[in-house]
Amino acid sequence: MQLKKDWWKFLSLLLLAYAIVRGLTIKVPDLPIIYETIRNLFYHVGMWFAMMAVLTVSFIYSLRHLKGFRRADDIVAAEAASVGLMFGLLGIATGMIWAKNTWGAYWVSDPQLNGAAVSILAYLAYFVLRGSLDELHKRGRIAAVYNIFAFVMLIVFIGILPRVAASSLHPSSTNDPGMTVAQMDDRLRTVFYPALLGWILLGIWIVQIRVRIRNMREQLDDILANES
């Protein structure tokens, strides 16, 4: 890694180290029910932000793929979607632990939870769709179309669902979405924002590495195919 080109990777590591150390040692406000579990805020919410960031990357590269039908764009779109899926599952896992300790059950009927589950289902469907198409060219094109369609509908879903559902246990959806951030303790914020940025950068970094591995594997396959 070079400091000039890859400064954001160092920044990500620094921010996450800061978020872990300070997130676990900081003095947190003594809120009822939540108490010390509020520290999960730095990790659980970060998963969702990282997921949305890499899924947006996937969306943008799907658009680019439809513009030029370049294989490289399709690879980025697919790898970003799979990293997004991984962050989504981690977000659900961290959320379930938190829910068990505050709301008393691993899974509660809540618009945020259902929204997350539906997003994960949609991207699992994206990979099923990819798997069922053999021809590379066709696969990239059709998967890109579904990716764009699904992403736009999911954004609408996340925007609409809290208003359609009767109530939510998540504090952010009772009024406007910015409420938690507005009410958040200043001490928490000094860890919360850096943690979010750190997770997002980490997500993009993982995508970059996975794309590179995938490219190498395909080149290797080409070389092996030519030798035999």
Binding site: L121, A122, F149, M153, V156, I160
Partner: peptide, 8 residues
């Protein structure tokens, strides 16, 4: 493919 998207 359709169920997750048709939900909203």
């Amino acid at each position: 493919l359709s169920f997750p998207i048709v939900l909203p």
